[in-house]
Structure formats: C-alpha cells, structure tokens
Simulated scan of single mutants.
Amino acid sequence: MASPIRIMPLGDSITRGYGAGISNESSFRKTLRQLLADDGYGIDFVGSQTSGFFADNQHEGRNGWYAGHDTATNNVLDHIADWMAATPADIVLVHLGTNDILHNDEDANEVSDIMDVIFVANPDATVVLALIINAQACRPEITTYNSNLNAMAIARIASGDDIIVVDMENGAGIDYSSGDMADGLHPSPIGYDKMATNWYPAVVQAISQQRVQPAIESLSIAGASISLQLGRLEPGSPIVVERTDSLTPPAWTNAGTFTPSAVAANWTGMLQTNWSQGFYRLATDN
C-alpha cells in the first residue's frame, strides 16, 4: 500500500470554509477529498487548523489573513515556513489574495515569495496555484491580480518550478450573481462544490508528479554474492529486481521479488560464474 500523498490546503477563509456550524464550513475540501477517494487516490490533508464536517479536515486556511503584509502579523508569508515544518506537505493548494485586495495591498510577488519558502521546505513539492475567485459584486482588481499571478507562475514554470495553475475565477463555472455565492466573497456549498471539481484534475496531475520510483542507491560485491542498497521504497509494495547482461539491447530477467517493510532495504543475490558484466534495475510489481 503506497503512502498517502500529503496535501496542504493553504489560504484564507475561503479555504477554511465560511460560517461556523453550517455546511459551508467544509469549504471545497470535503468534496475534493471525496472525489479523490472515489477514484482511489490515497491522500492526507495536512495543516494545524481543522474545520468542516469530515474526518480528514486539516488545513492552513485562516480567516482574514493576508498573503503578505509589512506590519500585520496575520500574513501567510511570515508563517508558512513553520507550518511546512510542523505538517510537511507534498502538494500545496494555494488560494490567496482576497484580503490583500480588500485592503488595496495585493501583490503577486508575495505569493511568489510564499512559494519560495515552500520549495525550500520541500524541494520536491508541487504547488497548485489558484487564480482566485471573484466576488459577488465583480471586482476588476481581482482579475488584474489574477493576471499578475498567472504571469508570475508562467515565468516560474519556465524556470523549472513545479507549479500547476488553476483558473478559479473563470474556470470553476461559478455564477457570481446566483446561489453559488453565500455572501459578497464566500461561495455557498454549490459554489464550493464547483471549486472542488475545478481543483480535481490539477490535484490528480500533481499526485502523478509526486509518485517517485524506487532507486538503487549503491551496489557491492562480496565473493559470489551481490548486494543492492535500495531507497525510496513504499513499505508493503512488492519490488522486482531485474537484471540484464547488456544494454544493447537489454533482455531484462527477474532476479528476485520482495516486499520491503521500510523505505530503505538491502537486497542480496547470487552471482553466476559465467557473468562478465551485469546491469540491474527496479520495477514495481503492480
């Protein structure tokens, strides 16, 4: 059984869920988790906050918080390093900027700075970055901010950063003038379900990018035996050790199958007297 992918929903009250004690409190997180579970994806929402009417309801969505701020302490940029250390994440879902816009202090570069911290904490992380939803009374500054977010993300992707952009403003199909919004800024349960559906394909893509392959870390020979030190294993998931005499062309054969009980393991096989050289690789038995 593969370890679950750790996902941190990161944002403000839209991520936390609006309205204590009502269905809105689950935000998009409950429906998104159910969509992933229904399709067999093993995930674990992580974070120091909990809200919503479902079991795996951890997150880092905080009411009224800014992406960044020069003086206010309730900003994500000043705290994300601590959160990533306390509850490490493989994937971070970012929906940030609404409160910054409300106070005329929005800056896409602050979100870029947040991603810098995320990638320092976990260089292999994937950030799924939302172009944030608009408001019930359309705010052009949100559209402008999203354009800046998108340009920033495109530049970072071109430089090799693992970022996936999701257009929440227009791509989720939210009708801002209808029952999709609970108030001026927060979605209703219907709107949150639309957000979840829009997150889903990007999260699936991020999960596929997070699945790492097992690796042969080192090889040693002692007498008639060969020993491989293996890493990046999934405990409980069978591994096949394959061997070929040549790579031109290869003819891989099964040299042994085992099920590791830890993320690292040692495999030992026997050398044949007629082998002049050999190449080894690992494959998952599924």
Rank of each mutant, 00 (worst) to 15 (best):
Y145I: 04
S220H: 07
S13R: 05
D167E: 13
E217G: 10
T259I: 14
Q229G: 04
L149N: 01
Q272S: 12
T73C: 10
N146G: 05
T253H: 12
D105M: 11
L247P: 01
S112E: 02
V76Q: 15
M270R: 12
T259P: 11
N74D: 06
R211W: 13
M270L: 12
A121Y: 03
R232H: 07
M8S: 03
F45H: 07
T197K: 14
H95D: 02
A262E: 07
E106S: 10
I226A: 09
P238E: 13
T273Q: 11
L102F: 15
W275T: 07
Q34F: 00
N74Q: 06
L10G: 03
I164D: 11
A86M: 05
P88V: 11
A262T: 13
M84A: 08
G173Y: 14
C138A: 12
M1Y: 13
Q272D: 11
D39H: 03
D90I: 04
N274S: 06
S177D: 14
H103L: 12
A67Y: 01
G21Q: 04
G52P: 07
A255V: 04
I101R: 08
L228S: 03
I80G: 12
C138D: 13
H95V: 03
A137S: 11
S23M: 00
N57P: 14
I164G: 13
A158Y: 07
L96R: 11
S237P: 08
E217Q: 12
Y192E: 03
Q49L: 03
R281C: 04
V92C: 09
I216F: 12
V127A: 11
S23Q: 00
D90R: 03
K30W: 03
V263M: 05
C138M: 12
G17H: 06
P9T: 13
I216G: 09
P187C: 00
G269M: 05
F119Y: 05
W275P: 04
F119K: 01
S112G: 09
S112Q: 08
V212N: 11
E234C: 15
D82G: 13
M181W: 02
H79L: 12
E60C: 10
V263R: 09
A89Q: 05
D107F: 00
Q34H: 02
V120L: 00
A215H: 15
D70V: 13
D161M: 04
N150V: 09
P235N: 01
M152D: 10
L131R: 11
M84D: 04
L129K: 01
D44Q: 14
P123C: 01
Y280I: 01
P260F: 02
N198A: 14
A121C: 11
S147N: 13
P238Y: 14
